[in-house]
Design a protein around this nucleic acid. Structure first.
Length: 861
RNA sequence: GGGCUCUUAGCUCAGCUGGUAGAGCGCCUCGUUUACACCGAGGAUGCCGGGGGUUCGAGUCCCUCAGGGCCCA
């Protein structure tokens, strides 16, 4: 049954009220049977960003997820079957770090499982490593599971409050068994096709988290440093002076390099010099990446100080002389080449951190006279793990990689073609994808030396000496998911773990992106439910923020291309980000963070959604928490919708067939027809902001002018001055109700709560499953005649005359003369009624102008 | 250093394929009109970042410079 129209409609309470109804009625549920019957073309599938469960949702999430929901709601109303799941990215380092701090624990895989373990804190941890209790891997993972489940519930609550129309029966977790199965299956297939491989290579390494990290996770930070001018010794006794910011790595030096065109150093190419203090003989070589104008123009190459060192080392085939360990300290053993007195110097450094090794080296170089002058302070970009707080080091380790086109021209071209096959909204965002693909410098490193993640599903055979040998052992796909560190390799017994002739399990896990790059496959239950998969894949829309084009968007395209040879989705909607009033990216450190929940509580969900909807895709939105203008406007719109609709529904409903006959009513509907056309096209083009703008603009004209003009007639209180006034009341009310019905649906994607409330006053079903409005249903087969704007202008003229006279708008007018196109006469009666004009003369004229107006004498009072 | 993007009213932003500058907020004035005071009516406000070019005509197209932002080096 329809809801009663309240006396005082209000926005308060609509979110929980309708949230419960939608849930109870399954309004947003994916109707699989109907979708199957209708076929894939009638399915609209959305690949949703799984937010990091351990992070916090911020205003930018609300912004982008609302954009996604606008498209979803539009498509649903157009009759598409929505496959709109939601996932949580709960695996990975961010969760581990949060768990460490929250519970005050740290993982030590060598410890046994303690079934009765109670963490020292519940949300009160200090985050200081010294106060953390070491726990077994299994205990640690249990805590991760516990906390993410709690976090995810809060996320879901927020999304429901925001009114996202996702199907909550279709949720997934990137640490869940289904996701693990998909991730491991995809990996095994990559491995079988040779796209996944294991290699020893210089690897970017975070010494805090003790894990390898990938190119996509890098972040440059400007850091203070200092150039140290240091002498290298030529065989003839002379010196070559280099400048370096990392003198502590001199022991790792394997060459000096200068630009091939640099005349200063050309004579030395092919010769050797000896390193200071250590006396190691290293070649002087030429390479175009050496910068002539930087420092002294000649640099030392170490294994490895930065990524350029890696390039030189590889391309110039230099020696390997590593001195840094995975803990970020100088290795105990001196590398090959350091002998005699050099060993004593090295012993002074061994075990030191990079920081203290540098200090000691400077002292030693100063004593030996190899340091020229004082170090010269500079700031320079240093590579960091985006979640780390110490500079990355480069160490050589054995890691797993997935091919990404960096070393394969053909694959790269296929990925670029995939980018061209996807419709980016806005289009220019494709460039960021292309830049990223073009700039890849190595294959995708997916192994992480961490705990809470999807295990890499392989084991290694041990030879009779207990050394790993041969190809990795892989499980069969139907055994997935597997955990090689707790399950025996196929064909082996657990007792053979670590024994000669037995096996060992891979202990590394996959980077979280190696799983979340498969969200389309996970949500569609790839291989586990082929019918569903074929129905929804490839998806229609990927919606996300611009900041994760290089990670999530790229990696998803890559996995789909490798596994399916197709694009994962047809459209990519890219949201901008939120900037504060100073046009700076919003950040927590500014202290002006507004929690999304607080925002929803304060302004209401419709208002917040309006704010998001009024920004186009790809455009950054300014947000000032002190002055949230757009939200106030959105709130006003939602309230106005409630009130205007209530008003319209208060007019007596005419008996008999509803026919719109009055020219003004016809013109209003014809104008609305244009609005429907424009809004529909805008939504089709993922331009929700434009759809909202044209709809909203019409709505205010409807309220301020049309509704004012016809309300007397709609009450049935205008006697009328012509024969056609007999149906005037019926015409007005019919047109009013028809217009409201259409406008509610146009606005439903943006303000789902207010529109649903109003819709319920006259309908039994949800507006969100109603058909998107069409021009045909307006029943007006005409282009706008221009009557409505004409009357609006005339009305403004009358109002202005009254304002100028400082009179109330209610003041009667004895006589008014208006120049206007004669079309205006068609609405003369309405104009007279709203202006309280006794006698109205309309004279032919091109422009609307009030020629004369005579207010009736105001009664004393 | 390379790429992308933005620069229009005090503020936030529209201006689609070139044809006389728009909205909302804010501001000023007025109005207790039975939909709405979380209201209504009216009004003022622009070298459309600078310079050059194409064109009968340029916020709109081209070049260039400056500044902001983002991404990549």
């Amino acid at each position: 049954m329809s809801n009663a129209i309240p006396d005082k409609p209000a926005l308060e309470g609509l979110e929980p009220k309708w949230g419960e109804v939608w849930e109870a009625q399954g309004t947003y549920r994916f109707d699989r049977a109907a979708a199957l019957a209708a076929g894939p073309d009638c399915v609209f599938a959305i690949d949703t960003p799984p937010p990091t469960a351990s992070g916090s949702l911020h205003i930018g999430h609300v912004f982008s997820y609302t954009h996604m929901d606008l498209a979803a709601r539009f498509q649903r109303m157009r009759g598409q079957h929505l496959f709109y799941p939601m996932g949580w990215d709960d695996n990975g380092l961010p969760t581990e770090r949060r768990v460490q701090n929250y519970y005050g624990v740290r993982c030590d895989p060598s410890l046994p499982y303690d079934p009765d373990f109670t963490p020292p804190f519940e949300g009160g941890g200090t985050g200081k490593p010294a106060e953390q209790v070491a726990v077994s891997r299994r205990n640690f993972i249990e805590l991760c599971e516990r906390l993410t489940v709690e976090d995810e519930q809060q996320f879901e609550d927020l999304w429901r409050a925001l009114g996202l129309s996702v199907d909550w029966t279709q949720t997934y977790r990137t640490i869940g068994d289904e996701a693990q199965r998909v991730a491991q299956r995809a990996f095994l297939r990559n491995l079988a096709r040779g796209e996944a491989y294991r290699a020893d290579a210089p690897t970017l390494w975070d010494v805090t988290f003790r894990t390898a990290v990938a190119q996509a996770e890098l972040e440059d930070k400007e850091m203070p440093g200092a150039y140290h001018r240091v002498s290298f010794h030529k065989p003839d006794g002379g010196t070559i002076e280099i400048e370096t910011t990392r003198p502590e790595l001199i022991a790792a030096c394997v060459a000096l390099v200068a630009h091939p065109d640099d005349e200063r150093y050309q004579p030395y190419f092919g010769t050797t010099v000896r390193t200071p203090l250590f006396g190691v003989e290293v070649p002087v070589v030429a390479h175009h990446l050496a910068q002539q104008d930087k420092g002294s123009g000649i640099a030392m190459v170490c294994t490895f100080g930065d990524v350029t060192d890696v390039v030189w080392w590889r391309e110039l085939d230099l020696a390997t002389r590593p001195i840094l360990g995975k803990d970020g300290r100088i290795l105990a053993e001196a590398p090959e080449g350091i002998e005699g007195d050099g060993l004593a110097v090295y012993a002074e450094l061994a075990g030191k951190t990079v920081f203290s090794a540098k200090a000691r080296m400077v002292e030693l170089l100063r004593e030996s006279g190899d340091l020229i002058g004082d170090p010269r302070p500079i700031t320079h970009p240093v590579k960091f793990f985006e979640k780390g707080d110490k500079p990355l080091e480069i160490v050589t380790t054995r890691q797993w990689y997935i091919a990404n086109g960096a070393r394969d021209e053909q694959l790269r071209e296929r990925l670029l073609q995939a980018g061209r096959d996807i419709a980016f909204h806005p289009d220019f965002m494709r460039v960021r994808y292309e830049n990223w693909v073009g700039g890849l410098s190595g294959d995708w490193l997916i192994s992480r030396q961490r705990f809470f993640g999807v295990p890499i599903p392989v084991w290694y055979r041990l030879d009779e000496h207990g050394e790993p040998t041969g190809e990795p052992i892989v499980p069969s796909e139907d055994a997935l998911p597997v955990d090689p560190s707790s399950m025996p390799a196929p064909g082996f017994d657990e007792a053979q773990r670590g024994q000669p002739g037995g096996f060992v399990g891979e202990v590394d896990i996959m980077d979280t992106w190696a799983t979340s790059s498969l969200t389309p496959q996970i949500a569609a239950k790839w291989e586990d439910d082929p019918e569903l998969f074929d129905l929804v894949f490839p998806y229609d829309l990927r919606s996300q923020g611009q900041d994760i084009i290089r990670t999530w968007l790229f990696s998803t395209v890559l996995r789909a291309e490798l596994e399916h040879g197709t694009i994962p989705w047809k459209h990519a909607g890219i949201s901008g980000f939120i900037v504060d009033p100073d046009r700076k990216k919003m950040s927590k450190s500014k202290g002006n963070v507004v929690t999304p929940q607080g925002m929803l509580d304060e302004h209401g969900s419709d208002a917040v959604r309006y704010w998001a909807a009024s920004s186009r895709l790809g455009t950054d939105a300014a947000f000032d928490p002190q002055n949230p203008k757009q939200m106030k406007i959105g709130r006003r719109l939602a309230i106005k919708v409630l009130n205007a609709a209530k008003f319209v529904y208060s007019f007596p409903v005419p008996d008999g067939e509803a026919v719109v006959t009055d020219p003004l009513d016809v013109d209003m509907l014809a104008t609305l027809g244009d609005v429907v056309r424009q809004a529909t096209r805008a939504f089709e083009e993922y331009d929700h902001a434009r759809a909202l703008e044209v709809t909203e603009q019409f709505f205010w004209t409807f309220c301020d002018d049309y509704l004012e003009l016809v309300k007397e007639r709609a009450y049935g209180s205008t006697p009328g001055d012509a024969g056609d006034r007999v149906d005037g009341q019926a015409s007005a009310v019919t047109a009013l109700r028809r217009a409201v019905d259409v406008m509610l649906r146009l606005l439903a994607p943006v303000i789902p709560f207010a529109t649903e409330e109003v819709w319920s006053w006259t309908h039994d079903s949800s507006v969100h499953r109603a058909a998107w409005p069409t021009v045909d249903e307006l029943g007006v087969d005409a282009a706008p005649s221009g009557l409505l704007p004409l009357v609006s202008q005339a009305l403004i003229g009358i109002r202005r005359a009254k304002t100028d006279a400082k009179a109330s708008q209610k003041t009667p007018v004895a006589h008014a003369t208006i120049a206007a196109p004669l079309l205006l006469a068609e609405a003369a009666a309405d104009l007279k009624a709203v202006g309280r004009i006794d006698v109205l003369d309309i004279q032919q004229g091109d422009e609307v102008a009030v020629l004369a107006i005579e207010l009736a004498p105001t009664p004393e009072g």
